[in-house]
Amino acid sequence: MIAALVIGIARRYLPRNAATVITFGLPLWLGYVLALSWFEVLRPVPGRPPGILLIFAPIILFIAVVVVRSRWGRIAALAIPVALLHGLQIFRIGVELFLHQFWAIGLAPRMLTYEGANVDILIALSAPLFAYFTTRGGMGFRVALVWNLAGLLALVNVIVRSVLTAPGPLNILASDVPNTFVSTFPYSLLPGFFPPLAITLHILSIKAIRVALEREQDSQPSRSAR
């Protein structure tokens, strides 16, 4: 449902070529992630690099090259309403409920849930409020900017803990149960889709806010001159 929503937003707001890439590229990516877990490529094997890198490495590359550095990141940030970019983060409530259930059935450690060291649900619950702040301009943009930075830190906290509690050579954090959902079909979709989506929304939001603040600052001298 969230993937379909992302495609729908892309087709509504983005240029046709970008929307087409997302329409066909996103299902291919999700199929790739599912195939990795279905064929057990993500399961730890002694002497082999962690399989989860086959998911995280392309994600990091995409965010760094396309979202952060390319002109398409700026185009998307300015094309999609900034309030929508913030409001969409509410999907993370569902992610946190999944993580809690994974802990209940022994697929994830407690520290990855909102009962442990994961504060991500607070970001999700407050998303509509900060979406509203962006409609107020000025100070509202500045408050939303701080919220986005906090949201990124919350994601980094969960991602790092997720990697360091997964079985394999990077398992250096002691936990009640190992983090195995990342390599379990079909739950590999959670790390393969939702964290990069949340990070992308935060980065696009920050880009949009910075442009809006620059425009406000540029307009101030014109007002004073009048």
Rank of each mutant, 00 (worst) to 15 (best):
Q101L: 09
R69S: 15
A108R: 02
R16W: 08
L42A: 07
G51S: 11
Q101V: 06
S162M: 13
W72S: 13
G31M: 10
P195D: 09
A198G: 07
G151R: 03
L36R: 12
F130R: 00
T113K: 06
I75S: 13
L112F: 03
R74K: 14
F62C: 13
A212I: 03
L53V: 11
G47T: 12
G51R: 09
G116H: 04
L53Y: 14
F39R: 14
S183T: 04
G47C: 11
E96Y: 03
L88V: 00
T184D: 02
L152Q: 04
K207L: 06
L54D: 08
P196F: 11
A79V: 07
S70K: 12
A3D: 15
L173S: 05
G25N: 12
V177Q: 01
V33P: 13
M1F: 05
F39W: 15
R43T: 15
A127D: 04
Y132Q: 02
A154G: 08
I209F: 00
V65K: 11
I206S: 07
L129N: 04
I105Q: 08
L54W: 12
Y32M: 13
L189M: 12
R226W: 05
N148D: 08
L204E: 09
A18M: 10
I159M: 06
K207N: 04
L84A: 13
L129V: 13
L78G: 05
S205E: 02
P44V: 05
Y187N: 04
V156A: 13
Y187V: 04
L78A: 13
L99P: 00
P186Y: 03
A3R: 12
R43M: 15
L78N: 11
I159P: 02
T180V: 09
P44H: 08
V65A: 14
L14F: 10
A64S: 12
S222D: 15
D120A: 03
M1S: 10
Y187E: 04
E96N: 06
T165R: 06
W72L: 15
W29Q: 14
V33A: 15
A77V: 05
R69A: 15
H202G: 05
P195N: 09
F130K: 00
S175Q: 01
E40R: 15
Y132K: 02
I203R: 07
S175L: 01
V143R: 00
V66P: 09
V119Y: 03
Q217T: 05
S222M: 14
S37P: 07
R69G: 11
S162Y: 01
R210Q: 04
G87F: 00
S219C: 00
N157S: 14
A57D: 13
S224E: 11
S126L: 02
A3Y: 08
M139K: 08
D176A: 06
R136L: 11
P27Y: 10
R11V: 03
W29M: 14
A225L: 08
N17K: 10
M1N: 06
T180N: 00
I123A: 02
L14T: 11
R92H: 10
V158L: 09
L99Y: 02
G138F: 01
S175F: 01
W29A: 12
P58Q: 12
A77R: 03
V160Y: 03
E40N: 15
Q89N: 13
V143C: 00
P109N: 05
V158P: 05
Y114I: 05
V68S: 05
T135M: 12
L164K: 11
V177F: 01
N157F: 10
S37A: 15
V211H: 08
G116E: 05
N157Y: 09
L88Y: 01
G73T: 11
F181S: 01
F39K: 14
V211D: 06
